[in-house]
Design a binder for these strands. Structure first.
Lengths: 197, 197, 197, 197
DNA sequence: ACTTAAACGAGACGGTACGTCCCGTCTTTGC
DNA sequence: GCAAAGACGGGACGTACCGTCTCGTTTAAGT
């Protein structure tokens, strides 16, 4: 069995992983996505460029890893109603999206959709995860007998999270109004799924 | 008004405008946004680079002009109901968004949000225009007495178009199901705005 | 015939050729061969790196062109005797070799012999030229009736110029003694070629 | 005296010394001086890079050791005449120089003259040694009464060995003709030093 | 036998330079 | 008198090597 023989050679220094991620995030915040250079990240992190390219095949992979590393989406605690669960999901997503400036998110999305490999990883991780979260709360609602018909998860996905993305990424809307938007969209979707007939 | 002073010298050859736009669209389709170079566009169009930069200040402006040049959004004809008007808006937007591959749209959005000037023009053109269209149909509905309360245009904007964008740009969902999505979102938003109590 | 079609496009700026050559020579003198970088040359010349790589395929070609550009070896004026002619050749070569520091000459020779293309050009230019010069003065001597036997040009070449190279490049000997060395080697070789029996 | 305190710890493995030297020579022959990398040597020798740098301070020292390690120049046995002694010296030097390809010798010379420390060691070892050999045979000739005047060792050095170096390193001349060249230069120099008046 | 200390293969590290590519501008020459 | 062809300054990219530095393992010498 071709085990990776982990004992051989000097192991990767995990402090360097953190230094790279940290420098990347700082520089994204300071200069924006378009002006981020690998040399600047290496310099800021006190690291050689080789250490970066040993970990990531391209600049985009580095940014991807540095920005979305710990987005661990979990289904929200059961709030007792579909509306409440959906609102919780919206608020979580909104909070994550507002953590980074919009140019970073757009840059990232552009790179993700420019590179097939990155795109597959993005879908397989984030989209799948969101879908799972939505499926979970829909199953809860079904167990409660709230649903009038078996819903289409993908459509619910778009109906629920689309407005949040649009508000933050396209309209560059006021973040202060996101809670209202979240509640509104959650209510609307919940109403549609539980319509008396 | 800074009119291009068209009387002096040789007038611009409008065939060149078309050649540039055509070459840009072809190369975007063939290689994708990230691999598009101005040299390649000039070469494909049989045109000098100077001819391009005489028309556009940056590569992004060129792509912008070549891809979204004729997005003339007009309020849809009065369908007689808010729900019908909203569905018409959704279908128009969906049709426009599906005209270009998603990597082009993401690339453009990234560049738009990386450059303040471009961003302002984008908002001032497309967002404002969409807002105006939505305002128009909401005013119609108000005139009909359909609305229960004065709606918040920006929120309606996000609620209505967000899911369409999300489906096309993030989920990379099946275009065949867009008509259903359009009708669903239009119904949902119309219901929310015309709720009986 | 694949002629370079010089009419099309902006022509190369010959001032840039000079700026590159000048910067190269200055930096070689200041820092030495091993520490010469293309970026430094470009910076010093006030030129982009692309302008350099448009002219030369590699750093070595650039240095080659910058350092040996105008070494136009001509047969010396007829001094009336073989000994005098040979001494003149030696002095010319010695003057050329002492124009550059020895580390540059060694670096250049190393690069020349590391790259077949450069090596061929070096031989085809300098070695051939030296051989021609020697052939010329030997023909003069033969015309004068000085020679006792038809000499082997290649060997005369080595016997005459070898000591000069060795003194300058290997021994790093005092340049002040080169005139004496030149006269000595010229006498020796002339004596060998004109031996009374 | 900073002796390596050989008692403690694991002793150096002399097989590794040989493996390094062997791999270095093989790779020099296969790829040439310019393309030799320490990693490649380590890999070929089945050795870690640290084992190399434990033995040699730089790549150049490693190559130096691998290529000229056993150049033990001794004064030749007394042949009975200055001419014979000088010819013997030339032949020995020629044999040593032809052992390595010319690009290796040029690379080494370039590195030697690029680094003061290495340069000093080279002079202090090889040049001094050659000078001693020449001094020895000149002293023999003086004892025999062959010399007409006290010779200048440095100049004799250049006159004698310069042509051999030039033939091998610059002209890349036929090795088959080196014996003739050796005898010719030895005769010439001997004649010059023993000229009847 | 057991400890100790250095050498070992492997490979990650900081740093530096390379040669390539593209942008947006500038400059000839030809149509 | 404009436009194609293409050279220009600038600057980032990803690669390659150098000489150094851990890792965990192996090998002798000294206890």
């Amino acid at each position: 069995m071709p085990e990776p023989k982990q004992g051989a050679g000097r192991p990767r220094d995990s402090q360097i992983d953190h230094a790279i991620a940290r420098a990347t995030r700082e520089l994204l915040a300071e200069r924006g996505y378009a002006k981020l250079t690998v040399d600047a990240v290496a310099s800021r992190a006190g690291v050689g460029k080789a250490a970066i390219y040993r970990r990531f095949a391209t600049k985009q992979e580095m940014i991807f890893a540095a920005t979305v590393h710990d987005m661990e989406e979990q289904p929200p605690p059961d709030s007792g109603s579909l509306r409440g669960d959906l609102a919780a999901i919206c608020e979580t997503i909104a909070a994550q999206l507002t953590a980074a400036p919009p140019d970073v998110l757009h840059g990232l999305l552009a790179d993700i959709h420019a590179d097939a490999a990155l795109g597959a990883r993005f879908s397989g991780t984030f989209i799948e995860r969101e879908r799972f979260v939505i499926d979970t709360v829909l199953a809860r609602a079904d167990a409660r007998g709230e649903l009038t018909a078996p819903p289409d998860t993908a459509m619910v996905h778009a109906l629920l999270l689309g407005p949040i993305f649009y508000w933050i990424l396209i309209l560059i809307g006021d973040h202060g109004r996101l809670p209202v938007l979240s509640r509104t969209v959650a209510s609307m979707v919940a109403d549609a799924l539980t319509a008396s007939e």
